[in-house]
Every structure is written in C-alpha cells, then in structure tokens.
C-alpha cells in the first residue's frame, strides 16, 4: 500500500459518497445516468466475488463491502425510490454496445481462463467505459450540476492516482498487471476532456455547460 493507492481509494470512496448524498439530500437524481450506475454496480459485483473466496485484509474487505453497498443503494434510489425524478429521456446510451464487446474481450484477453478471473477481467474492462452513458447524457443536455461534476472529478482522479500507484509498484515491487494498466489508461483518457472543463469552468465558480 502506497500513498497514491490509498488516496486513489479514498478519492473513489469520496466520489461514490458525494453522488449518493447528492441524490439522497436533494431527493432527486436528475442529471444522473442510471445506466452508468447500473454498470458500476455490475463492475463491483463481478470484481469483488473474491470476497467469498479469499481474504486480503480488513481494509480491503471493508472497502469492497462499502463500494458494493453504496452502488446498489444508488441504483435503488434512481430506479425505485426516486424513479419519478430520473431523467430517462436523456439517458439513451446503448449499454449493449459496451457490455457485448467488453464481455467478448474478457473471454479473449485475460490472465487465466477461469470463471472468477474472466469476471474480474470483465469488471476491469467494463469499469474503464462505464462512465460513458453519464458523459453522453451531459453532452446531450449540454450541462451538469456542479455537485455532479465534483463526483466525476473524484471518479477520474481515483483512476489517475492508480496510474501513479502502478508506476510506483513497478519500480519498487516489480509488480505490474497489464490488463489493469491498459484499462486504467483508457479510463483516465476518457476523463481528460472533462478534467479540462472542470478546471477551466467549475473551479472558477462557473456552472459546467457546453456550447450549443
């Protein structure tokens, strides 16, 4: 465990909690892509099946349980409790265009052809693109609430910090996981455009809105 990995995990946790609290406090999930949230719930579920097979540390187990719990709570709020506020008309990204290729790739490129490992690989690939429905929704409506942009910022920051963590681990532990690294680079790149808007607009006190 190094400082980049820890701050990455905490940044991820911050993102998840910010989103959950935003929805809970405002009693509204307007502007939030339910599809992205379902994909993230699927990511955590398929990745953390090892909760049942191996114990790594109390920290590891606790974080996994929190991530899974929060992601399902978010999905529950969007599709059940606060369904009336869900902006389904703007959440039109076709997720099958992500799930099918990602599933195929997980079968073809993995560390080990075993069910648990294929599901882990699937979750890594899926996570790298799971935010696309949310970004698509923002590009469609042309704007995002400031709190939503904070959520996206911490979510992107988490993966960027993980990239530094992997460089660190490569140098100091000789550890590297090519699948995680390539997917992590792709995931981080997807946030670059958003990071630019976040720094140039949101941090200067303006609302994130795109030119029509």
């Amino acid at each position: 465990m190094n400082i980049f990995r820890l701050t990455g995990d905490l940044s991820h946790l911050a993102a998840i909690i910010i989103l959950l609290l935003k929805i809970w406090k405002s009693r509204s999930c307007a502007g939030i892509s339910g599809k992205s949230q379902v994909l993230f719930a699927l990511v955590f579920t398929t990745r953390y099946l090892d909760l049942l097979t191996s114990f790594i540390s109390l920290y590891n187990t606790t974080m996994k349980v929190i991530y899974i719990g929060c992601s399902y709570a978010t999905v529950y709020l969007i599709y059940m409790k606060l369904k009336a506020t869900y902006d389904g008309n703007h959440d039109t990204f076709r997720v099958e265009f992500l799930i099918v290729p990602v599933g195929g790739l997980a079968f073809l490129v993995n560390h080990d052809f075993s069910p648990l490992e294929i599901l882990w690989t699937f979750s890594i690939y899926l996570e790298s693109v799971a935010i696309l429905p949310q970004l698509f929704m923002i590009s469609k409506t042309g704007e995002a609430e400031t709190i939503t942009t904070h959520y996206l910022f911490f979510l992107g920051l988490y993966r960027a910090l993980y990239l530094i963590n992997w460089i660190w681990r490569f140098y100091f532990e000789g550890f590297f996981d090519m699948i995680a690294i390539v997917a992590g680079v792709v995931q981080t790149i997807l946030y670059c455009d958003f990071f630019y808007l976040y720094v140039t607009k949101v941090l200067k006190g303006k609302k994130l809105s795109l030119p029509a």
Partner: peptide, 10 residues
C-alpha cells in the same frame, strides 16, 4: 503476467 492473478487492489 501470472502475478496479476493475485488481485490485492480495489
């Protein structure tokens, strides 16, 4: 590549 199978990250 084998090392990746022990997944200790989140």
């Amino acid at each position: 590549w084998q090392r990746g199978i022990h997944h200790d990250e989140l």
